[in-house]
Write a protein that binds this DNA or RNA. Structure first.
Length: 601
RNA sequence: GCGCCACUAGCUCAGCUGGAUAGAGCGGCGGCCUCCGAAGCCGUAGGCCACAGGUUCGAAUCCUGUGUGGCGCGCCA
């Protein structure tokens, strides 16, 4: 439709009816807010008025004249100050339906590997403790952004940067050692339950690391356990396991320690030094990031001779560039936003284009309990892990995966730049009222109708073809409105990917589900499939309008495809059917969970 | 003090690359199951879009300022 309008404008310019300067204007081509106005609306006349130096209504009239008679256009109306409302022919809707049916769950996707090579770094939580509920946001956001980018044709490497070097890791090792020897944890060390479990396992299974005089040997063994988990432990399932249970995937695990081991850190610093970006002051080595737009210069080597975290970060980003990516995306929590300037500065100082780096910042998750701030601390021993929240919801919903779906929905349904309040009590109490189940229910309902059509009436959509005659049987406004919604999906997906905003997909899926479910409830008197009251009359089969049924089944199949595509992008399970939890069952399940918890405390 | 992010219905949030009468879920009120899944649907009440200026034919949307809240400003990671 946009092409049609652009074409019409170009024609007008060529004919001299419009100044060619007017072609530079940007305008919208959308569905009007009120469906009765038309199928497609554009504000082009309003947007063009300045450049065209004509009143908008005059532009609108010219454009309307040009569009009338164009293929697919049924009716054009000039409205308001200069809007153009267009009604399209049924053929346009049918073409959309054909596209969706042909593409299936791949609907809306661009051909693979047609875009940029992107390195997407996310989570990268310190491997000194289990993943907490607050880490979930970065994990799920990063994963969903990765999926979106892939869907529009980019080649994405998802990477977890493992901070297995430096103070924190050393302290983890020392805390384990202290635990093994019955001493209290060192200052700033770790003393939570999971360290006890970690120490017990390492003491029994990693004798070489325990015996090694190098304290880093034990620290490294501990990090490996934090990532892989302690077999059979619920306290320490392992970061990789937790991410897998959320459906979060990484392609690569990049070790910070390896940068040091292979001399990458010193090499990067030498490079900076040769370019005149390093300066020694008071015994420490500074990177002159202030000259590259940072607030102040940053230390890369402390006066005690040890490199800072930032030093490895320079080397890490230099390495990413060297690996040949077109774009580096770092998904970071808002508490790291200060990093951008210095890392950007370092890339620029190393002679790379800093525009390659894109920082996707997400605001933090505020934990509340009964409306009051809930402070978590590794030393307080009150850590809320992803694992435990997910398990609890799984149990309440009586399905493994329900917790991951609920958490993914929770995090993905909000824009990344707003702070989230997560009330643990409310989250538990309302886990079964989570809107994610609404999304899944709509999908299950579509599947269930298709299955019933196939099994009971032997009308499988796989064997059906959308012929023009069949397509013409879809003529109701609400049916065509949903087709129009399906038609929007590819553009929406492209936009969501470009803006790195998965929440747009959530709201789209919600809208689709709502329109779909509303349709069936409102049309109880005009069912797609024959009902009992029809089938008990002899000879009903000859009287039933099977073509209408076939047309609508294909329509449902198309909805199911787009719907499934959206859920897949979000990483939310598309369930072909959902086990009904009646009110008693839901209460019972919720109650059982509470009881269990009390028993466990 | 400086920087980043936000402020939209009672609550949680969409809408923000300017466009027509600002939307959804939850909660409130009132309806709808002998028939395609009621984890559903329909209706209804509820809004100085934080505030003040500015730009514009047009501002929830862009700019400036103010207020409130979150986060950051280590020779920590």
């Amino acid at each position: 439709m946009r092409r049609l309008i652009e074409g019409a404008l170009a024609d007008l310019a060529r004919d001299g009816a419009l100044p060619s300067a007017a072609l530079g204007a940007t305008f919208s081509v959308d569905r009007p807010k009120r469906a009765e106005l038309g199928d497609v609306a554009t504000n082009a006349p309003l947007a063009l008025q300045k450049l065209a130096q004509m009143p908008p209504r005059a532009v609108a009239e010219l454009l309307a004249e040009r569009l009338r008679g164009a293929e697919g256009v049924r009716e054009v109306a000039v409205a308001g100050a200069g809007f153009l409302n267009v009604r399209v022919t049924p053929a346009v809707f049918h073409a959309v339906l054909g596209d969706v049916l042909a593409a299936g769950v791949a609907y809306g996707r661009a051909p693979a590997a047609t875009g940029e090579r992107i390195l997407l770094e996310f989570v990268s939580a310190n491997p000194t403790g289990p993943l907490l509920i607050s880490h979930g946001r970065g994990a799920i956001l990063g994963d969903a952004v990765g999926t979106l980018l892939e869907a529009v044709g980019h080649r994405v490497t998802r990477e977890y940067y493992v901070n297995d070097f430096g103070n924190q890791v050393r302290l983890l090792g020392e805390s384990v050692r202290a635990m093994l020897e019955g001493r209290p944890a060192p200052a700033g060390g770790y003393g939570a339950d999971y360290v006890r479990e970690l120490a017990a396992w390492l003491g029994a299974n990693a004798k070489e690391a325990v015996a090694d005089p190098d304290p880093m040997a034990l620290a490294r063994a501990a990090v490996t356990r934090m990532l892989d988990g302690v077999p059979g432990s619920t306290v320490l399932p392992g970061i990789k396991t937790t991410l897998a249970s959320l459906g979060v995937r990484h392609d690569a695990w990049f070790s910070e320690e390896s940068l040091h081991r292979w001399g990458r850190v010193s090499a990067a610093l030498i490079e900076l030094s040769q370019r005149g970006y390093l300066e020694e002051r008071e015994g420490a080595l500074f990177f002159k990031s202030e000259s590259e737009g940072d607030d102040k210069d940053r230390v890369v080597r402390k006066s005690d001779g040890l490199y800072t975290y930032f030093a490895s970060d320079i080397a890490y980003h230099a390495d990413k560039i060297a690996r040949g990516y077109d774009r580096l995306i770092d998904v970071l929590g808002a508490d790291h936003h200060g990093y951008q300037a210095r890392v950007r500065g370092a890339l620029r100082a190393l002679g790379s284009k800093d525009e390659k780096l894109e920082v996707l910042l997400y605001q933090l998750v505020n934990l509340l309990r009964d409306g009051k701030p809930y402070k978590m601390g590794k030393r307080l021993g009150n850590l809320i892990t992803i694992e435990e929240v997910v398990d609890e919801i799984d149990e309440a919903a009586r399905r493994v995966g329900a917790g991951a779906d609920a958490l993914r929905y929770f995090y993905l349904s909000r824009r990344s730049d707003t702070t989230i309040d997560l009330d643990l009590e409310v989250a538990k109490k309302t886990s079964l009222d989570n809107p994610v189940f609404y999304l899944q229910y709509g999908y299950a309902r579509a599947c269930s109708m298709l299955a019933r059509a196939d099994e009971v009436f032997h009308v499988g959509t796989a064997a059906l073809r959308l012929t023009p005659a069949l397509a013409a049987r879809l003529d109701q406004d609400d049916e065509l409105a949903i087709v129009a919604t399906l038609g929007r999906f590819p553009a929406l997906l492209a936009e969501a990917a470009a803006l790195r905003e998965p929440h747009r997909i959530v709201f789209y899926a919600q809208e689709l589900s709502q329109a779909f479910q509303s349709y069936f409830t409102r049309r109880k008197d005009d069912p797609v499939l024959p009902q009992e009251k029809h089938t008990r009359e002899p000879g009903w089969e000859a009287r039933w309008d099977w073509d209408k049924t076939r047309a609508r089944l294909l329509w449902i199949e198309a909805i199911r495809s787009a719907y499934g595509a959206a859920l897949r992008l979000l990483g939310i399970t598309a369930l072909p059917r959902m086990v009904r939890l009646d009110d008693a069952g839901r209460d019972g399940a919720a109650k059982a969970t509470e009881d269990d918890e009390e028993a466990g405390t």
